[in-house]
Amino acid sequence: MTDQGFSTKAIHAGWDPEARTGAVNVPIYASSTFAQDGVGGMRDGFEYARTGNPTRRVLEANIAAIENGTYGRGFASGMAATDAILRAALRPGDHLVIPNDAYGGTFRLIDKVFSQWGIEYSVAPVADVDAIAAAMTPKTKLVWLETPTNPLLNVGDIAAIADVAHAGGAKLVVDNTFATPYLQRPLDSGADVVVHSTTKYLGGHSDVVGGALVTNDEQFDADIAFLQNGAGAVPGPFDAYLTMRGIKTLAVRMERHCDNAEALVQVLNAHPKVASVLYPGLADHPGHDAAARQMKRFGGMISVRLAGGREAALDFCARTEIFTLAESLGGIESLIEHPGAMTHASTAGSLLEVPDDLVRLSVGIEDIEDLVADVEQALG
């Protein structure tokens, strides 16, 4: 379905109205096991829900289609997807390169868990292709990239980093959670695998947790599928259904997220209590040109550094009324958080430690006038 538009694929890919009933939406197949026509006689390949579920299969096909990929795999969370790809790609003694600005959960998994199994890593700035190349070793099997990054919204040039990774014999993984496949499709730029926390923009309603991996590499997909089944961190059918429901409106939601974020950036950028605004859409953002090349728009995430330091950042978080103080992002409602004390606390004392004056905003789809008024009153 690569010749169809994004929204058409988001709404239709993976499912045709059911032949028997004409159901327009995929049913929630709430069955843990499936009857077989004799020993080994599976119907359409289904035998046990951990191995495969019809609702999940449709979700996987749908996510693959909107990422312009061939193979999609669903997981119980974004971290479960991250864990699966690390285990599929790495063995004891291998090395990977990670961003100096990455999601705290990703860093924690690599630093605290995989390091115990002999996996080594180096840290490099996502915006510096030469630094990424210099961080690679003969043992490097994976380069991990977030773009835009969480929470500093740095931007990596996917095509250039893919060239560097492949020249060194490594695969490039891109976490596309912030951008979503509506704004950016890393496989088209040379990435080997795309990872999503579908909890965020794809689900879009703060009511479901999930993850996904998409690739065009048949063998890599087979390795991932083996771990998906063997480890069993799969989404349930209702989770898969909710995620698909969210994906159907992803395009229209992302346009509103971007509209609101762009308007709010202008307000924040002019406010005397804001020391700096981190947003790829700003012309003076160091990653603006790369973002403009590889993204359709610049997204709904904003980070700011407060002129009054940590106390001002905490006060800002405490005073908003429409922006809810909470972890996560990408839902229809606006959220605010202090990464250093919340989502990125695990990076404290490391090369990935985030500034303590930093506040991250997930801009929702409420009326922009109300969001502006809320930010202005919270900043005082």
Rank of each mutant, 00 (worst) to 15 (best):
I28N: 12
G78Q: 05
P54K: 05
A30R: 15
P138W: 06
F46E: 04
V39S: 00
L96D: 02
R43Q: 11
T51P: 02
R91L: 13
A135K: 05
T140A: 05
K139M: 12
R57G: 10
V155G: 04
A127T: 14
T149G: 05
V39I: 12
H166S: 12
G74F: 09
A167Y: 08
A65Q: 02
W144A: 12
P148W: 06
R91E: 11
A80W: 11
A135V: 07
I119G: 01
S77I: 04
F34Q: 02
R87W: 08
A165M: 05
A84M: 03
L153C: 10
A61G: 11
V164R: 01
L59N: 09
L86I: 08
I158Y: 04
D157V: 04
D83L: 09
H95N: 03
G104K: 09
A81P: 01
G52Y: 00
A131R: 10
A160W: 09
I98L: 12
N25T: 15
S32Q: 14
Y71D: 01
G40W: 00
E67M: 10
S31V: 09
N154T: 14
L96K: 03
L142G: 00
R50K: 12
P148T: 06
Y103G: 13
M136Y: 02
V123E: 11
E146S: 06
I63D: 03
P99W: 10
N25I: 13
M42G: 00
L153W: 07
A81E: 02
Q116R: 15
S32K: 12
Y103L: 15
M42S: 00
S77L: 08
G41S: 01
R87M: 08
R108T: 09
Y48C: 04
V126L: 11
A88H: 04
G45I: 00
A23N: 15
A84S: 09
P125E: 06
P138M: 09
S31L: 12
V123Q: 08
F114E: 13
E47P: 00
Q36W: 00
F107E: 04
K112N: 11
V39K: 00
F34S: 01
P99I: 08
A162E: 03
N62D: 08
R87I: 02
Q36M: 02
P99C: 05
G156W: 00
A131H: 01
G156K: 01
T147P: 06
Y29C: 15
A64E: 01
Y48W: 13
A35R: 07
T137M: 04
T51C: 11
T137N: 06
D83P: 06
A35V: 10
A133P: 01
G156Q: 03
F107A: 06
A127M: 14
Q36D: 01
D83K: 10
V155D: 03
A162M: 07
G38F: 00
R73S: 15
Y121V: 07
F75W: 09
N100Y: 15
M136D: 07
L109N: 03
A89I: 09
N100K: 13
T70G: 03
D130A: 14
F75G: 06
S77R: 10
I98T: 10
I85M: 09
A167D: 13
I28F: 10
R73K: 14
L145F: 08
T51N: 13
V26L: 10
G156S: 05
W144S: 11
T51Q: 15
A167P: 03
A131K: 09
V24Q: 15
A49T: 14
A23C: 13
G45F: 02
S115A: 14
G38H: 01
K139L: 11
V129H: 08
I98E: 09
R57L: 14
A133D: 10
A167L: 11
